[in-house]
Amino acid sequence: MYKTTPRAVVFESLGILLRKGSPALFGLVLLASLFSYATPYFLSFANFLTILLQSSILLMVALGMNLVLVSGGIDLSLGALLGLGGVITVLLCHGGTAVVISVIAGVGIVSVFGLANGLLIARTGLPPFIVTFGTMGIAQSLALGLSKGSSLPGVPALIRYIGEGRCIGIPVPVWIALGITFLVHLLLSNSCFGPHIYGIGANEQSAILSGINVKKSKIKVYFLAALLAGIGGLITIGRMNSAHPTVGIGMEFEAIAAAVIGGTSLFGGIGGVPGTMAGVLVIGVLRNGLDLMMIPGTWQISIIGVIILGSVSGDVILRKR
């Protein structure tokens, strides 16, 4: 008979936590306890909501990036597309178009970019890195050119509600993020599309041989990623009450980092929505905690770089053992 002591239970659950591939969760707990110790402002419900609010935009981009990474690709244009969607929406609103139509147009144009990414990658067989690198330049320059390089203040009330309203005490972006996360999770785990993209990412040749329409699935993946980035752009302009063309620069990299911290493989075939969520929260908690500890932004850049590198190295080393 096994004797169950509390100590054994603790060790066993720790072991499961480490083995079940959730270093992101482990890091999250570690960071949260560190910051709770370091600053008195960290551990409160209000601050918890702030972290969720700050993370919701990155979560949109990271979910799309996770889909793309799982299919064995990469999408560098997502950050620039997020900025472009906001600029187009606000410009149309300023031009007198109805709010709903300008929102649809902004998100729609961004999705067309995603479609173009997918078509180029699936039809011509060019590496995703190059295609999306090119679209990143194109989208960034369109955003800057259309807005003439300055930020466009003044956003209609409906979009502001999306960005900074509250519903049952919880910010609207958090609701949107939760809903979309749930939908993407369903898509990955409860539809036939999910296994298809895992299969394509793990081994494209065998995916083709087993009858999966690889080209169509790839186009869908890039389209969905761009669509999510467009929604992220909408939340961003609502929160900032202005559209800024360069707001998304670097966000694609943060999203890649979040997905990788959450256990998504850069080589495709591995990754899930819960992990990505945990990865986004790791970055969110880190930003928030460093802000609360009054660490200047210049130091934060370096610290986050070191932590991303450290956590990914730790993950790889642990997996090798």
Partner: peptide, 19 residues
């Protein structure tokens, strides 16, 4: 360590830029 060069050099970009 065998980490993808993309992640390594991207983190290094942040570290060096911050520095």
């Amino acid at each position: 360590i065998g980490i993808h060069p993309f992640i390594v050099t991207y983190s290094m970009m942040w570290i060096s830029k911050g520095a």
